[in-house]
């Protein structure tokens, strides 16, 4: 199952990934990272399709995308 790993201390809480996620499974946390920003977090990894749009749009390379087993190329990147 694909999933994302969000680095709390790189995220600056810009929320662009939340808007970008087609599955709408990202939200902003209630606690803050080391820089004092509310960081993004995945709240329903079961519905993550590994499309990487969150990571593509993240201006701080705070999101890593992983998967298990096969992964499909949805677009050339």
């Amino acid at each position: 199952m694909p999933s994302v790993i969000i680095d709390k201390n790189h995220c600056k809480g810009c929320e662009l990934c939340v808007k970008a996620c087609p599955q709408q499974i990202l939200q902003m946390s209630k606690t803050i990272g080391v820089k004092g920003y509310f960081y993004a977090e995945l709240f329903d990894s079961s519905r993550c399709i590994g499309c990487k749009l969150c990571a593509v749009t993240c201006p701080d390379v705070a999101i890593e995308v992983v998967t298990h087993g096969t992964s499909f190329v949805l677009y050339d990147y």
Binding site: G50, K52, V61, E64, V65, V66, T67, H68, G69, S71
Partner: peptide, 13 residues
């Protein structure tokens, strides 16, 4: 099943 990274920080960054 082995976990595979499909998006990560580029080496040049």
């Amino acid at each position: 099943i082995k976990e595979k990274t499909i998006f990560a920080r580029p080496d040049s960054m």
